[in-house]
Design a protein around this nucleic acid. Structure first.
Lengths: 135, 135
DNA sequence: AAGTAAATGCAACCGTGTTGCATTTAATTT
DNA sequence: AAATTAAATGCAACACGGTTGCATTTACTT
């Protein structure tokens, strides 16, 4: 399936900006911030970029994560998340040298025992350290 | 040890704003956002509040955490963190009903196996769900 | 090729957080 | 207890991330 077909499948129009964003996220197994993407596509309007990312997230195509510094980042959903309520069952790794955020799809979040009365609906595990390229 | 003594021990002056903030964080086992504290102490200048929180964090008296929505929150460090490099070895719980953030000091973050080349320096586990007061 | 709903681009705005600087105040010294 | 001084405060002004409204354009439909 082409990128354009993937976008249309979700009920969205395959516009140039959307193709650019999806291609970037698909080709690099990393979570990008809005600022990084804005720098990557200088000709793209920043508001449009915000809306493209919001639409992709609502369509369940990407997921949003916060890195250690509280910066919002986006990464493609691998295992076709159920729209908008995608359960992110994998671990994220934030390199403190290059600041890249990796989705470690193969590492699932371990279960934790909570005190009585706390009912969990989702777990977010964010590991920081030095990545394989910087260590 | 009094609150004022605790503050002076860290090389900071025991001022009214600092006493207010430390008292709030000490008495309630929750992580408060800047906005919540601003609302709690209407007479306190917001810039002063930012600086008090920054100073407390640098002194290792409180630790900073991001909640699900990317809001910065502060909680007292229980086990006397080594200044500024405090290892947060406990789990945080973010209630999606009342939006309170709990430090579950008794629940330590489970270890995870990372792919070769990734060297971890810290783990952050954030669980969201419904807390004991809202469930 | 024309029609239409969706997507874009721009202006203007809000919230969070920071910096510089003059003033005040907590702790120290006499 | 008064004077000293370095630290803390309060204010203005700013930078940045993100949102909303509206007119224009464009992708898909017929």
């Amino acid at each position: 399936m082409t990128l354009a077909e993937h976008i249309r499948e979700k009920g969205l129009k395959a516009t140039p900006v959307r193709l650019l964003v999806l291609e970037l996220l698909q080709n690099n197994q990393q979570a990008y911030s809005h600022t990084e993407m804005e720098a990557a596509f200088t000709e793209v309007d920043r508001i449009t970029l915000y809306r493209v990312l919001r639409d992709f997230e609502e369509a369940g195509m990407v997921h949003k994560i916060m890195d250690i510094e509280g910066i919002t980042r986006f990464a493609v959903c691998k295992h076709s998340c159920p729209d908008s309520t995608h359960s992110e069952d994998h671990v994220h790794f934030n390199c403190q040298v290059c600041h890249k955020m990796y989705c470690l799809e193969m590492v699932t979040t371990p279960a934790v025992k909570l005190p009585a009365g706390f009912r969990p609906t989702g777990i977010n595990t964010l590991i920081h350290g030095v990545c394989k390229h910087c260590g």
